[in-house]
Design a protein around this nucleic acid. Structure first.
Lengths: 188, 188
DNA sequence: GCAAAAGTGGAACGGACACTCCAATATGTA
DNA sequence: TACATATTGGAGTGTCCGTTCCACTTTTGC
């Protein structure tokens, strides 16, 4: 969409403004007016570069998720611990955009368009975790690894929600249990 | 608030309408107009009986959560399996209000008023699970039981989210893993 | 340097929606 | 019955917001 240099710059300004607003005020604080004011841009410019307000929001969240990936290249070198750490960092780290991610997931519960976006990224993540499980425990069959991954990730997501609502909640400590928990561990 | 018989009846009609709308259209489908139309009531009547739209929504969700409680009297007789089953039933059962519960939790991530409501009910639930853990494994110390409860519940919440977004997801099967303790089982 | 295309600001539009207000009526009580 | 108070409908209010439209300017490739 953006073809000229100025257009690309404007696009970045808009994304930065959106990111900042999401961080500071949450998803409800992000209105088109807020974005365009913050980015010092007219509404026309916005719609010249984005299809909709949500379009910009999704892009910001996508970038934030990517930023904490321990293995962005997909080299298959990330351990379970790495992945859990990355997830915890994402949820409890300085970027409040984790909230937005979970809220979007919440909207996905009734909005099929959002659900498919969220599910797609969920699937990718489950696969990453399943692979890590297999590296962690060679010989684990694929189905079993995927099931473990699903539960691991579910637990992390649930813990993340609690952590985001309760400032006193120690997500890291609980998350470590997820890997230590005998129920999720190999026998013996 | 309602003092006369007619008032109480109207209140019930409003709650029934809200429940129905939540079930059918999700939280976005519930507008004041929709509620009052469905309940065949004027806006004035609504605000005579409820403080706000959210007030009615919360009440409906609260009742739905209560309805699947395996031990409403709090007699302390519910087993871990009962609790997990109840949670799975709540999430995958016929009442689509589970979605609403999770969505409200999502809103709690940025709205402190909602967060405190959600956290309060979360705490109660964690306690129920912790107690059940202790009954399940006598001699378990209280802190350990609570930590297990926190993780168990987090995993169930996460699985619930996936289940609600992905119709093909078998939540029950995954949820059973959450309780499985390989150390107590001969073989998987 | 010139045109075609991209970029720009911001007024205006259309619609949604929670909530208020109030005059009229129904209800319960003494 | 008489009266205080609860209940009622629904028009009206105020506000917010995403998006469109368009005349004008800037950029870029040639």
């Amino acid at each position: 969409m953006a073809r000229y240099r100025v257009g690309l710059e404007t696009r970045e300004r808009i994304l930065a403004a959106t990111r900042r607003l999401l961080s500071e005020f949450g998803i409800e604080g992000v209105t088109l007016k807020a974005i365009t004011d913050q980015a010092k841009v007219g509404a026309g410019s916005f719609y010249n570069l984005f299809d909709s307000k949500d379009d910009a929001v999704f892009e910001v969240v996508r970038e934030a998720v990517e930023a904490v990936d321990p293995d962005p290249a997909g080299a298959g070198t990330d351990s379970l611990e790495d992945l859990v750490d990355a997830f915890v960092a994402f949820m409890t780290g300085s970027s409040p955009i984790a909230r937005i991610y979970l809220q979007l997931a919440g909207r996905g519960l009734t909005d099929p368009a959002i659900a498919s976006r969220v599910l797609r990224s969920h699937r990718r993540r489950v696969e990453r975790f399943a692979d890590a499980w297999q590296r962690h425990e060679p010989g684990l069959d694929a189905i079993e690894a995927e099931h473990r991954a699903e539960v691991t990730l579910a637990a992390l997501t649930g813990l993340g929600m609690t952590a985001l609502m309760d400032p006193g909640f120690d997500m890291r400590a609980h998350a470590q249990r997820v890997l230590q928990d005998p129920r999720l561990q190999p026998e013996r």
